[in-house]
Design a protein around this nucleic acid. Sequence first.
DNA 1: GCATTTAGTGAACGCGTCGTTCACTACAGA
DNA 2: TCTGTAGTGAACGACGCGTTCACTAAATGC
Lengths: 199, 199
Amino acid sequence: MTDSTASRRRGDDLERAIFEAALEELAEVGYANLRMEAIAARAKAGKASLYKRWPDRAHLVRAAARYKATEVETDFEPSDDVRADFVRVMRYIAEFQDGPFGEAIRGWVGELGASPADEAEAEDLRQRIETPRIMVFAKILKHGVDRGEVRPEALQPRVVNLAPNLLTHYFLTRGHAAPQQVIDEILDQVVMPLIAAER
Amino acid sequence: MTDSTASRRRGDDLERAIFEAALEELAEVGYANLRMEAIAARAKAGKASLYKRWPDRAHLVRAAARYKATEVETDFEPSDDVRADFVRVMRYIAEFQDGPFGEAIRGWVGELGASPADEAEAEDLRQRIETPRIMVFAKILKHGVDRGEVRPEALQPRVVNLAPNLLTHYFLTRGHAAPQQVIDEILDQVVMPLIAAER
DNA sequence: GCATTTAGTGAACGCGTCGTTCACTACAGA
DNA sequence: TCTGTAGTGAACGACGCGTTCACTAAATGC
């Protein structure tokens, strides 16, 4: 009715449409209220096509999160202001979390511990989310170290991941992404004092 | 069969039994696989008694989490070794997360964003979890400040919450509580360098 | 250009869980 | 001992899950 192009999609074409539909549904109703039939309907696909690809909701959502994770911008050129760079990247992450991707992550977290079988897949998704962040934050920090603005110990993994991890913690436990004020507090109270070359 | 005391409990007595049953179920099957009927059966109660008290699973689990949160040990006497104190408290939190309380928190997080109606109740639970931690960590830090081991700026809220927040982030995104090695890394790479009075 | 194979559709199904209802029963207070 | 209150347990309709199947559109082979 809506589309007079009554064509029938297949393969990757259809898969992408399902992912988009799943993410839109996630954004609208949240993971807990996500219905397979609603995803199928929005994608104008049959429920059977969903179950042919993924065994259940959790797998579909993880796959959708992986799909969306590839959209993350990873080529970032650091300026000569570490704090400003951090703000830019953190705002970018926060915006991402406030969209459908955030709800996908929330669903993934909620499901962890329910099925210890899929630990490997969960680990894979974690890596895909973390890796681009590590690259960007490490680049910023290295640039700061080169200019003497940042102490070299700041390149340790727990320090590189500190800002995004605190952002994610806020998002998960609050239900919405961190506002600018929280980003500022994280930077001024925690991150900058920790990485600054001198006090 | 088990209890030949075929007595019928009421009020708070019954409520406590339901909480205990819910937490045991959570620990065994996880939030995603939690069934109201299983909780009722384990508590030797009728399903109607559950729905008379809470409108749905999410409310029951939040209530159970609140109930369990009152068990948290809050009277902690700091030693003269800040790092050792942090290790002790962080291990205590990690052990708590690996039990039924952890799964309750995971369920709560997964449900956030699904029903914006109960934001107030969610906020209340967050406070109840956070407050005792703030008290303990602030006490440790104050003691450190008094002895000149910790810089006074470490009493800012984001710094006080830093260690438990990173623990919680690890637990939520990994599916299990942080092991000793992770606690050490958090302390040696992040917390101690941040709070130390001198470098 | 036609026949065959592959993949998607949509409706129907059985099943399990939800949340509710109701007749019955045990306990508490007077 | 009587009465009101609260809990029990079984049954119920509704709903979403995950599967099945006859049908159909697209891709592939000839």
